[in-house]
Structures are given as structure tokens and as C-alpha cells.
Amino acid sequence: MFMLTIKSRLLLPLSLLITGLLASAPAASQTVTIGTNQPGTLFYSTGVGLSETLENQGINARVQPYAGSGPLMALVNQGELDFAVVNVFEVSRALDGEVPFNSEHPNLRVVAGLFESQVGFLVDDDSDIQELSDIAGKRVAAGYSSAPIIELMRQAIVANAGLSDSDITTVSVPNTPRGGELLSSGRVDVAFLSAGSGSVEELEASMGGVRFLSLYDDDAAVEATQQIMPQGYPAPMDRESLPAGIAADTNLLTYAVVLVAHRDFDPAAIESVLQAMEEGSEELGNAVANFRGIDRERMRGVPNIPYHDAALNYFD
């Protein structure tokens, strides 16, 4: 957990030692652990980029990947993990104890909004699936047993197409990297993946081209999507340089990605991390494209979700 490790020098007068401790409390000796999803996912690369930026700003940080959001949420809620990179949809459901969470997680608090994540259904560029409704009758990676929140997102995209699982052939996978592997080997026609993730870049290279299917943005489609995922909505990617598989007019399922901590986590540590993020904002953007443009407004701007008191004090 969060620690300040300060080496005392026994020969210093006590008054000087105390002064030094007070002056250096939030300094370079801080150590934090950031929980993420598995390697190959956008959230893992987000955690790595964040940890590297914190390191360069004088905060010792390490990334610890886990199999899905369930363990992440539980550990943060119990005070056994410092931070976690998660999406606002799962934070909301965890707070209230809604599926896939078996109990309320009342201690979760947002530290900062990081960026909007965008996900969707990926197909081979040569596929005859030209629009989202064409997935009817096709093999779609589903289940996501190690990340049930992703399964809900997948269902939201199917609903956006005006379909249900009875209209497609679901193929069970434990996680998004496995779904990508089955797409690459031709064992599924459609896989759920994060735009801009390492997995998509690898599939683009190995398959000779992939593309995301655009979600519909009419009122009925949006309503169907939000019946399952209230915090999600279809939107195009707002970037000058689009990642693999994305055309300028491709609507993706969009939602906020946040950094969370326990409600009683050390306020000084929270403020130090936020200051490091703010001062290292350009570096964050260079490490992970989604971070580009991060500022106080974005970090503070996630609606309808409780923030850590220290974060609110910092932003004020």
C-alpha cells in the first residue's frame, strides 16, 4: 500500500530530522501500486503509461495486472490495493452491488477521470459484415468469464444493432485477448476489443487489415444501448490520427475511464499523484494517445460518481 520511506540519519540533530521529514513527506520516496486488467488490454497500457509518468515525477509506482475488474474492485474497496484503472460503468455497478458484483463496494472513490475509452466489434477487413446489423447469424466472441463487465458491454452493442443473442452464434472466451486470437484464426467472425489497444494493432499486422463496425446513433439505438449500459453512448473517435481499424465516421461505444482509490486512502498521496499527473500531462499523452489533452477539467469532470475528498480539495 502507499508508503513514505525516509532514511533517517542518526547523527542529525532531532530538530533538523523532524524538519526534514515534514519537508520531504510527499516527495520522491512514495510507492504506489496501480491495478489494471491483463497485458494486451488498453487498461494495462494505461497503467504502464501512468506508472512511468509518476516515476519520472518522483513517485515510485508499479503496475499489477489482474484477471478482470472483480478482483480490482474488491481489493481497492478493502484497502488492499492503492489504485485501479477501471471504467465508470463498473464503478457505478460495484458501488451499488449490481451484477456482476455480488455485494456493494461502498469505499470506492474516483481520484481522476483519465479519458474516454472506446470499444466495439472488430472484424476482418475482408469480412462480408459491412454494418453492425450484419452480425445476425455470425459467430461472435462472448461470455468473457474473467471480465463480466465486458460481457455486459458486448450485450449493449448487440442491442444497439436491434438484435439479441438469439440472433447470433456466441462463442465463449475468457477475455478480450482470447477473442482476438479466435478472430485471427477464423474461429469467430466478430470480436469485442478496445480501439487503440495493443491487441488491435497486432491483429491489424497479422491479419492484413481489420475494421470496427460502427454503432448506430439514432434515438432507438441509443436507448437500447443504455438500457444495458446507462453510462455508454455511441460516438466517433476524436483524434487527428486514428488507430488501426477506425474510419473517421465510425461510432464506437464510449465511456469514461477513471482512476479509483479507497475513500480513506492517504490524502497527501492522492494530491501528490494528481500533481504528478498534471505536471506530467504531456508525457502521459506521449505514452498513451488516449491521455492527450488531459487537464483538470477532464480529471474532475466525471458526473454522477463520488470523488475522493482529497481529489475534490485538490481540484478546488
Rank of each mutant, 00 (worst) to 15 (best):
T5V: 12
K7W: 02
S8F: 11
S8Q: 15
L14N: 13
I18A: 15
A23V: 08
A23M: 07
P26R: 12
A28D: 12
S29P: 07
N37E: 11
P39T: 13
F43D: 15
T46C: 02
T46V: 06
V48K: 15
T53L: 01
Q57V: 08
N60Q: 15
A61T: 10
A67T: 08
V76I: 12
N77G: 10
Q78W: 00
G79I: 02
L81H: 03
V85C: 08
R93C: 07
N102F: 10
H105Y: 10
P106D: 06
R109L: 01
G113S: 06
L122F: 05
D128T: 11
L132Q: 07
S133N: 13
I135M: 05
K138V: 10
K138C: 06
V140G: 07
A141H: 00
Y144I: 06
S145G: 04
P148I: 07
R154Q: 08
I157K: 01
N160I: 00
L163A: 05
L163P: 05
S164Q: 02
D167A: 14
I168W: 10
V171G: 09
S172C: 03
T176C: 01
P177I: 03
S184W: 07
D189V: 08
S194D: 14
S197I: 11
G198F: 03
S199D: 14
V200K: 11
E201L: 10
E204L: 02
M207H: 05
G208M: 14
D219A: 14
D219K: 10
V222T: 04
Q231A: 09
P234W: 04
P236S: 08
E240A: 15
I246Y: 02
A247F: 09
N251E: 04
T254I: 03
V258C: 05
V260S: 07
D266E: 14
A268L: 14
E279M: 14
S281M: 07
N286P: 02
V288H: 09
R296P: 00
R298Q: 09
R300S: 14
G301R: 01
G301N: 04
A310K: 03
Y314K: 06
